[in-house]
Design a protein around this nucleic acid. Structure first.
Length: 471
RNA sequence: GGCGGCGUGGCCGAGUGGUUAGGCAGGGGCCUGCAAAGCCCCGCACAGCGGUUCGAUUCCGCUCGCCGCCUCCA
């Protein structure tokens, strides 16, 4: 079995075929840094991080590029609102983004490309498109002429005739076709600008991704990702620009798109204003709980964000975390095991190879945990024959969950002293139990419980952990 | 109007032409001084209507309902 992915361009699941058998080049459209990312954005970044992790696990050497759109109409608008210059604003929200991603356990890209650091490349690309007749200038603006690029609409599966272009928004009067899009925008008074053959201005949104992806990965790179709302027009336009400019095809070998997060029955979106920021979610739930929520369904389908969904994810996560802690307690540190033959690993890989079927992958790990918990009980009761199998299971568990990005960071108590005090109270309680003073023992458990410390009695002694803060 | 997708047991969510998804919640049991955690057992689900088939939730057609994209958007 080998990896298969749903390719938006093919509109079906196809074998994943990178240009080089052991390397993968991937580009994901990053945020426009004008505000906090919401949980829908976060899910997309979480998922592409997961895809990157899985590709790496499967032995590919991955080069992952992501961009920051740090010049844009919304940035200009927001900078005025917050009364700072555009650069300061972009810096502020890119820092916030990085903080959120860190809290979610999303790894940094290998290359982070900022639009403002690639303006000369973009100007050159626009010039090239004008020279070749794919673009035209009007009043200091440059537009891409969609009718001159054969196959415009191929990615999104639409034709120029069938689209209701300009129906919802009045097109710029200088456009030759309503779907023509800006490659270069003339600067208005007081807007940030760069010099160009067409006068001061700034790049249009789409050109940055074409230019930067080609710059770092070359034409025909392996995987381009983003949310499904980017298929049209953003990715369609990227493709048109790139292939028109270079005269080569394909621009991208595989297009992958993640589904939208819904709030009740409508899409979560900044323009609708119905957003929950990643930060708000992270205030309530652990980043790994949010990760579990993201993994509970396919990356491609629309999912509803709700309190209940997060609580369900938290319950499932706690099951894994408890198993992890019990193993650590009983076995000491367990290393991820990559040698031992294990059917759980085989099932996990088969699931993930099938267009990253995380629902099944998660179910496999739940199955592993069920067997593991059974062995755990046996070992705790002193059955050393089960020890070896438990070690294998624990190792496989760590291996697979870490592919999914889980670290199960050990619980932290506010300071060392608090930890030793809890240990001491546990000792007192053990003494009380030994003397069959159950009332006193229960009182200690109850009081600690009200402070968020859960006590568990096991055959090998009492243990404590912090209750998960799931609100 | 065009394009894409969805409708599975109380909830979430996979999947398959005839055999167990998985999680949460619920019921019963085991373990425990009591708990907690855990383990075992339990729900005869696949929007509706036709068709193909020995047999369809899974294939085909129609109907109904829902969502996304066609403007910025992950």
């Amino acid at each position: 079995m080998s990896l298969r992915v749903y390719d938006s361009a093919a509109r079906s699941v196809v074998p994943f075929e990178p240009a080089h058998p052991s390397r993968v080049s991937m580009y994901v459209c990053g945020p426009t840094v004008y505000g906090l990312v919401h949980i829908g954005n976060a899910r997309t970044f979480l998922w592409f991080d997961l895809i990157r992790r899985y590709l790496t696990y499967r032995g590919f050497e991955v080069t992952f590029v992501m961009n920051y759109t740090d010049v844009d109409d919304k940035i200009i608008e927001r900078a005025r609102q917050e009364d700072v210059d555009e650069e300061t604003l972009a810096h502020r929200y890119s820092e916030a983004f990085e903080g959120d991603m860190k809290a979610l356990g999303v790894g940094a890209p290998d290359i982070l490309a900022r639009a403002t650091e690639h303006i000369p490349d973009m100007v050159a690309a626009v010039e090239g498109l004008v020279e070749q007749g794919f673009a035209y200038e009007a009043d200091g603006n440059v537009f891409f002429a969609v009718e001159r690029f054969d196959g415009y609409g191929r990615l999104s599966g639409r034709s120029l005739e069938d689209m209701r272009a300009g129906q919802r928004v009045e097109p710029h009067p200088a456009k030759q076709h309503p779907l023509d899009f800006a490659l270069w925008k003339a600067a208005k008074e007081g807007e940030p600008s760069w010099s160009s053959p067409w006068g001061p201005g700034r790049p249009g949104w789409h050109i940055e991704c074409s230019v930067m992806s080609i710059r770092y990965l070359g034409m025909g790179f392996d995987l381009h990702g983003g949310g499904s709302d980017l298929i049209f027009p953003h990715h369609e336009n990227e493709l048109a620009q790139a292939e028109a400019l270079t005269g080569e095809a394909p621009f991208v070998r595989h297009w992958l798109h993640s589904g939208m997060v819904q709030m009740q029955s409508e899409k979560m979106s900044k323009s609708l204003g119905n957003i929950v920021t990643a930060r708000q979610a992270l205030d309530r739930f652990d980043g790994e709980v949010v990760r579990m929520w993201a993994l509970s369904g396919s990356y491609r389908t629309q999912v509803v964000f709700s309190e209940q969904a997060l609580r369900d994810a938290a319950a499932a996560y706690d099951r894994w975390k408890t198993f992890h802690e019990s193993c650590a307690h009983l076995l000491g540190s367990v290393a991820a095991q990559s040698e031992a033959q294990d059917s759980y690993r085989d099932r996990f890989i088969a699931a993930m190879d099938d267009d990253f079927n995380s629902s099944v992958a998660v179910a496999v790990i739940h199955d592993l945990v069920r067997e593991g918990n059974g062995r755990l009980g046996a070992v705790e009761r002193g059955d050393s024959a089960e020890h070896g199998r438990l070690e294998v299971l624990a190792g496989t568990f760590i291996e697979l969950t870490s592919v999914l990005g889980f670290a199960f960071a050990p619980q932290v108590v506010s300071d060392e002293l608090a930890g030793s005090l809890i240990d001491y109270l546990l000792e007192l309680r053990e003494q009380a139990r030994a003397e069959r003073e159950f009332e006193r023992a229960d009182e200690i458990r109850k009081r600690l419980g009200s402070m968020g410390v859960v006590i568990e009695d096991t055959p090998s002694g009492a243990r404590w952990r912090l209750a998960s803060p799931t609100g």
